[in-house]
Design a binder for these strands. Structure first.
Lengths: 165, 165
DNA sequence: TATTGTTATACTCTATAACTATA
DNA sequence: TATAGTTATAGAGTATAACAATA
């Protein structure tokens, strides 16, 4: 590993660029996430996972099966049941039976859920636009493109690992 | 705000680039984070917050005060106490009294802690380098620079908000 | 009075695994 | 047997607030 001399004579691992990049990525995400979580709690008494689940449903008018939500939100099934239960209790989503498979449900937004999500999404968008207001349009595009490469590479590595198992 | 007409006559906010960027940033971070958390647990029986705390101390030979750790790790003080307690129990860090202020401690790595952190950091670096292996050196630099702008902008916004309060 | 750190508590989110019902 | 979803449980991580000791 590369070493960098210190004034006191000791050496320290020189963090490669990838490591510096990761720390910065983590910091940025945490900063924006704190803003978003705080706002969701303060203004809508809700949480990010609940918002994320509703965001998935907003783009699927006819709803989405539990296991599809599980896959998309990258959490295990039991958690989807829990979050869905909360949202059902508040009449924001509903479970709809799937014709032809009596084991499965589709979860979809209720009218109330759609209205509330629209409010939240509007605010959420404002927070996010603020967070990236320091970048030009072109820079936003570049960042998006480069992160796309990271995502694609990580996902393909992940798949390769899983196939080996 | 830009609107996009729906078939049913309602309109929906058209997701601006900033929103797409945020979702992608979040996905990338979560993907890498899952790898790192899993690796830390499987190979070192530790967690990311514990690793992060030790990483702060590794760069402060003479240790760091609890409230400084709290600020740097962006969590409240009680949590620092809890994580520190765990690490003290495993002889990885120690609390050192601060001369001249009998309320305060400095937390610093023990010899065992330094050795274990070196192992973990080495593995951690490998995971991170893998995660960004899809990018060229130049792209890593660009990403780092652009995220730097995001960080700076967000932090200055955060400070401005806090000062208002 | 303010600050440092601790303690107690409660809550959300998560994974794991055993379970029921259905395919 | 396999799959969809539920339940129970344990643990990580967090914030809040009351508290003791010291500044």
């Amino acid at each position: 590993m590369d070493k960098e001399a210190r004034l006191d004579g000791t050496t320290v691992a020189e963090h490669p660029e990838a490591l510096r990049l990761w720390l910065r990525l983590l910091t940025c995400t945490q900063l924006v996430e704190k803003q978003v979580r705080g706002g969701l709690r303060a203004q809508f008494e809700t949480t990010l996972p609940r918002f994320d689940l509703m965001a998935q449903l907003e783009r699927a008018r006819e709803g989405m099966k539990m296991n599809e939500l599980s896959r998309r939100l990258m959490v295990t099934g039991g958690n989807i049941t829990g979050i869905t239960d909360q949202l059902v209790a508040e009449d924001l989503v509903e479970r709809v039976p799937v014709p032809g498979d009596r084991r499965a449900y589709r979860v979809r937004l209720t009218g109330k859920g759609r209205r509330q999500f629209a409010d939240m999404a509007h605010q959420h968008e404002a927070w996010v636009v603020d967070a990236f207001a320091g970048l030009s349009e072109k820079e936003v595009g570049t960042l998006h493109r480069l992160l796309g490469k990271v995502k694609q590479h990580t996902l393909s590595t992940l798949l390769a690992t899983k196939e080996k198992i």
